[in-house]
Design a protein around this nucleic acid. Sequence first.
DNA 1: CGGTAGCGAGTTGTTCAACAATCCGACAAG
DNA 2: CTTGTCGGATTGTTGAACAACTCGCTACCG
Lengths: 236, 236
Amino acid sequence: MASPSSPDQAGADPWSDLLADNRSVLDRTSTAERVADALRQWIIDGRLRPGTRLSEHSAGKALGVSRNTLREAFRLLVHERLLVHEFHRGVFVRVLDADDVTDLYRTRRLLETGAIRAASDIPQERLAAISSAIAAAEEAAAEERWLDVGTANMRFHQAITALAGSPRADEIMQQLTAELRLAFHATSALRRFHEPYIELNRHIARLLTDGDLDAAAHALDEYLTTAQRQLLDAFT
Amino acid sequence: MASPSSPDQAGADPWSDLLADNRSVLDRTSTAERVADALRQWIIDGRLRPGTRLSEHSAGKALGVSRNTLREAFRLLVHERLLVHEFHRGVFVRVLDADDVTDLYRTRRLLETGAIRAASDIPQERLAAISSAIAAAEEAAAEERWLDVGTANMRFHQAITALAGSPRADEIMQQLTAELRLAFHATSALRRFHEPYIELNRHIARLLTDGDLDAAAHALDEYLTTAQRQLLDAFT
DNA sequence: CGGTAGCGAGTTGTTCAACAATCCGACAAG
DNA sequence: CTTGTCGGATTGTTGAACAACTCGCTACCG
């Protein structure tokens, strides 16, 4: 149903656009991908703790999919570094070590400060996306929903990366932030880890709207350094 | 066989090193990954042209693996963007468009110039890796093996990225270069595309050894701009 | 007592066969 | 020339089967 048969009612122009949108939505109905989406969300939410083993048999039965399909989903998440696959031993939710955290921040610094420096003539909508993320973080903080604060905070950094205008950079950043969640959950304990950064985010956003890219990049660099140190300290 | 039971023969030290090497070789013997490696190499070499369709049945029979295993390999390469998967239609060797090329260079610029700027006190071995890549390119160029020139050229850029000292950045860069091969093969025709850049690479390497990071980053930026334009032009 | 060899249960790696869902080209009808 | 419709071919997904492997347990031996 909803077939493209219903014809020339009004001689409309904007057709192929609408089609392109729906295509991407309808096409992506693969069971393996949906399973991967679910698992990813569980990991990000912390419902699956790092180190947890995911047995193919039980996980497959729990999700109602076949073992083969589940394996396809596992492959996807292994490639995203959310799971690790040990040959003949199974897949586990990844547990990050200090080196991982260090590298994660190193890469983020590369991407985010690079995105700022590469940006010139920032479009209004990109600034709006940044502000929106900060506002969401503030709102969540006011209601003490710290997990959501973390999510909004990540959205802020993704919006920063988006300044580069590069789909690939965006995707890489998305993966990095998902990975970073593993670190948060590994340390756990700190529910208020994100709070102090909201104000800093505001500051950076202000520098960006003022067009002072260099100062913004510098502030972000410092931000990342202190955040990294704080996370590493919590790692004991 | 080769079990760690054989004990204290000689009080040898260099054991775990040798183990770590072989472990990575022996452990990762997954059929799917080996299939993916083979396919990846074929794509990079240009033996599988962009747009080629890979039917599960025939490809599986050709490689002597089951359909399920082949699917796992496909998933891997789809995630690396070397293949595209269209639902219920099959997998194809990816064909890049102009936007892809633009974005590829945008991301490279982010990573490579960022790596240079982030580097301070470049270790000797990293400089050696860069020089080695250039030397390999010169050698291949002298013998007119242009495909190898391209490979060496990519190695140069990977060595540049390695200045950041980030495993993740390295891996991202490796993926980007593999993807870029698709563009080269899509345009084909230009066998001498890489040649003029060897000298430029030398120039950048010299700036790096002199410690003039800013100039190096700037030169690389220009390099990428012209390379991008040239590739886009060849795209017609 | 310590270590080690081997057994066995459970899990993963891989293949195979089957069926449902879907795409594609061809052919017929308007 | 467009629009249904049909059938073959391919993909999506499942379930079962067997081989290969890991891990904990036990019994054996020094």
